[in-house]
Structures are given as C-alpha cells and as structure tokens.
Amino acid sequence: MVGPELERLIQVLSRLPGLGPRSARRAALHLIERKDVLMRPLAEALASAADSVRRCPVCGNFDSVEPCAICSDPRRDDGLLCVVADVGSLWAMERTGAYAGRYHVLGGLLSALDGVGPEDLGIARLVTRAAAAREVILATPATVEGQTTAHYIADRLAGTGVAVSGLAHGVPVGGELDYLDDGTISAALRARRSL
C-alpha cells in the first residue's frame, strides 16, 4: 500500500511516546501533505537537535551548550542543589518558576528489579557537587523507589554539613479529600502545619 520510505517513516514515528501504528500512519500522512510547512522544518529541527543537543557534564540536563544554560546562569543560587530523577522532572521544576538554584539529574532511581545501584546513578559525583552547596533538595518521586533513593542520598550526605530536605507529600492544589487515596491523605495528615 505504501512505499518502503513511507513505511519506514511510519515505523519510526510509531516508536514515539503517545503514538501507535495507526496514529503514526496519520502523522506520516499529515507530514507528507504539508511537506514544505511541516515536514522539512521538522526534519531540519530533528537533525539540528541530534547534532547539537547533548547531556550537560555538570548537571545531566540536555542542552546545546556546555555547560547547560541553567548551570552557566550566574543569577542562579549556587548554594541550592535540587536532585531530580530525570530531565522530565527538571523541566517540571523549571515550569513552576519557583526554584532558582542548580540541579543534579540522577538519570534513574535505585531499583532492585532493574539492577540499578548507586554506582549507576553517579551518586559519588553528586556527593562531590553537594559539598559546595548550602542545601540539597531531594525532589525524587513519592514512590518506593524514589524515596529509597532519597534516603540513600540523605545517608551519603549525612556528616557533610550540608542541609538535606525533601519535597512535601500531601494534598495537591485543587485536590478534594474525597477523591484522594488513603496514602496521600495519611501523608498529608502527618505533614500538617500550623496556620
């Protein structure tokens, strides 16, 4: 039905998150029909990003400059270091606009199942970086693996004199108690604060 080039395009597109074979076929058709306004610019953007974007050797973020824009921004607070599991978490933190310190991307979480240990996450490098900070904020997910990783890092940083904190767990903005799970409500209750 379609030629080998188009078939290959559909195959590659179907490997993208959110796309299956059907939606990849629709996307490929959409691109072909808008060759000049969409397909060529997309191809150029992809080629350019593939050539220039790389992992920042300091924090692990993705950027086309080394070190990345966040690491080289002089307005950021060197005393604050936020530890995140992946670049997606870093972007989520950045979207808030509420944090103006530096980052450290672990590139994963400790996982017994997947055989990910401290050496795979470069925690020794984090400990070295943390020595220059005033506070390390552990922003790993509120999951068993995320918090296991956070506790492990906190242990490694104990005795270095650096303050270690973690993100609060509890009721999200707009969250109604009736719709929250028992665990979230219990965590929120434990972390209650005086008003």
């Binding site: 017994a112 296991t148 767990h169 799970d181 219990s186």
Partner: peptide
C-alpha cells in the same frame, strides 16, 4: 487498593528499606 502500606513508610528510611527488602526477597 485494599491497604496503602507504602505511603505510610515513605518517610521512614528503615521501614522503607525493610519493605523493599521483603518484596525483593519474595520476588
């Protein structure tokens, strides 16, 4: 969900390590 044990131990490093160990051993 019948009982959310994990949420209750996320802040306790030792308990979290024990539950993770027990689950990994069973597995």
């Amino acid at each position: 969900m019948a009982q959310a044990h994990a949420a209750g131990i996320l802040d306790h490093a030792g308990r979290l390590a024990a539950v993770a160990s027990a689950c990994a051993l069973c597995e």
